[in-house]
Amino acid sequence: MTHSQEARPLGGAGSHTDAAELDSPLLPLADDALVLSHRLGEWAGHAPVLEEELALANIALDLLGQARVLYSELGDEDELAYLREERAFRNCQLVEQPNGDFACTMIRQLYFSAYQELLFGQLAELGNPLAAKAVKETEYHRDHAEHWTLRLGDGTEESHTRAQRATDALWRYTGELFEPLPGPAPVGAVDWGALRAGWTERITRVLRAATLTVPESPQSGAWTAGAGRQGLHTEPFGRMLAEMQHLHRSHPGASW
């Protein structure tokens, strides 16, 4: 990709973001929220029904709000969102997966929102103000995804087939969610084992109620799955990022 404007390297002269902040364990959480927000935003104008259009946009807005608060704590939010290269993003690979069909979007939503609710629940108890605020929102996101999972899994033969396909296909990206994020508290003090146990219990219960089979395949793979936190991303992420960053990079400082 070539850009017309002068590159503003992160952590370089004139930058508002210190390089040290890029090692903060808050950055992966911010990136998760931003990337999933953008993916959900791609449904605008394409959702199956009007109510769902509003729901996905609302959830995307909550996630964008989380990302903005976290980025602001770390440095300049525009720099962090729009001027980092793919390898500098620390989001998990689950959230960058393409929307696919509606079942795929909803199972991704189920896996992620159940994780985020438990993570924010712990962070809220550890005294993080954003988590205390956002945990109540993620509860609505998780509830929404659970209802859809039940409807799709226990719906028609076609919806069941698609929901099971999504459940299986996205499973390999779930192991990464429970890899400890080293660093200072509160994120550094999270009990990842408890998080994993809580998530597994919840997801198993929802999938079974939806007549779906809980995958037995590995939750991460040696070849690609599960390295987003280290900056390795799946191929569709580069295209998503190019689209997301294009306007800001082409027209630096533009506003309306």
Binding site: L54, A55, I59, E137, Y140, D143, H144
Partner: peptide
């Protein structure tokens, strides 16, 4: 309940 999410983030339909 029609939808948990409505015209603004704070309302359900």
């Amino acid at each position: 309940l029609i939808s948990r999410f409505s015209s603004t983030a704070c309302k359900a339909l």
